[in-house]
């Protein structure tokens, strides 16, 4: 039998490991670059805020950042799954509106509040499932399928009610927004946490486990790399893509519960444009819109970047709040360009 020695002196073969050095490490992990950049921007914003306005790096600000953005983090996690496969989900904002209006109405109608919470989550799952079925079995573009779901959910929410529906203060759902003091700081500078934040943290941890420690997660990345190859490798592409949309929908339901609990009311116009915020968070966090590369933790950082930006603009007082979207757009553009640069470097 002949031996395969000729591969060792192939010029195009892998370079030996001994070159070493950070440059080489970075080259092998170019995919991490956008996520690092997001982290860097986040830290820079904190430093800038601390210097310019002060009182950024303190317990109460951090607590508020987490509490006010828990729902966005949950949405961004869901979209990370979808975008990693190369898809998109535009329905999540509208699903939140429908789920929360329905939830508040049913609670006020005297249904068991815990049952209602489960139902709110399941409403999200159902919308995700329908999107997934449309995409997978009826060959509808993800953009179009989820756009249809977005209109459907928004319309259903408006049919239920067009005025803000208040949730009774004593409702157990509001308990999810109860603030627990972890650290009792001086004056109002306390580190507080809500069950909503804990839910977000659990969602993130489960997502990290799913994506990096299960075959399902690896299939998600593989589909994003090449759906055709994944099919030819015998991976369960169909079921995985279905699950991805179910996960995104379900997390929209979870976000609806967390948000409704915090606000204590629901309205049919809630969540307009939130799907875009979540997509922006995901992209800023380093997930490639083409799929196949990115990290859940990056999306969390992306969501917090958006949240912190709002805080800084509020603190400044001189910046008109309307400019928030312009700044978001600017940051997004920078990150998309960064991704393109990384992608072209990779191709070399």
């Amino acid at each position: 039998m002949s031996t395969v020695t000729s591969f060792d002196n192939r010029p195009t073969s892998v370079e030996p490991k001994r070159e070493g050095g950070p440059a080489r490490w970075l080259k092998a992990h170019l995919g991490l670059l956008p996520t690092f950049a997001a982290l860097l921007i986040f830290l820079a914003m904190i430093v800038y805020g601390e210097i310019a306005y002060g009182r950024i790096l303190q317990a109460s600000t951090v607590s508020n950042l987490l509490i006010n953005n828990a729902h966005l983090v949950i949405l961004a996690v869901g979209l990370t799954f979808v975008i990693l496969t190369g898809g998109i989900d535009l329905s999540v904002g509208a699903v939140i509106a429908f789920s929360s209006v329905a939830g508040v109405l049913l609670t006020n109608a005297g249904w068991n509040p815990w049952f209602v919470i489960v139902l709110m989550v399941l409403i999200g799952s159902l919308f995700g499932l329908i999107s997934g079925v449309l995409i997978q079995f009826f060959d509808v573009q993800p953009f179009i399928a989820t756009l249809a779901m977005m209109f459907l959910a928004r319309g259903l929410a408006s049919m239920l009610s067009t005025t803000p529906e208040r949730l009774a203060d004593e409702s157990p759902m509001r308990g999810l927004a109860t603030q627990f003091k972890l650290v009792d700081g001086p004056r109002v500078n306390d580190l507080v946490i809500t069950p909503g934040v804990i839910i977000a943290v659990v969602v993130v941890l489960v997502a990290v486990f799913l994506l990096h420690r299960t075959r399902f997660g690896r299939t998600v990345y593989a589909i994003g790399g090449s759906e055709q190859s994944s099919t030819l490798m015998g991976l369960p592409v169909v079921s995985t893509k279905l699950w991805v949309y179910v996960i995104s929908g379900t997390l929209a339901g979870v976000a609806a519960v967390v948000y409704t609990a915090r606000l204590g009311s629901a309205q049919n116009i809630t969540g307009i444009g939130w799907e875009l915020d979540a997509i922006a968070a995901t992209v800023i966090g380093g997930t490639l819109l083409m799929g196949g590369a990115g990290f859940v933790l990056g999306s969390v950082v992306g969501a917090l970047v958006l949240g912190l930006m709002n805080v800084l603009i509020t603190r400044d007082g001189g910046i008109r709040p309307e400019t928030t979207t312009i700044i978001t757009g600017g940051i997004l553009l920078v990150f998309v360009l960064l991704q393109r640069a990384v992608a072209s470097r990779r191709r070399e």
Binding site: R218, Y221, S226
Partner: peptide, 28 residues
């Protein structure tokens, strides 16, 4: 196949083992 059907966004090892990863108590 003629055009190699692997995922070039993943590592060599991930491609070889995709769908056959060794699993332990804490997932893969």
């Amino acid at each position: 196949y003629q055009e190699v059907n692997l995922c070039d966004n993943l590592t060599i090892g991930e491609n070889v083992m995709l769908g056959h990863e060794t699993r332990g108590r804490f997932g893969i």
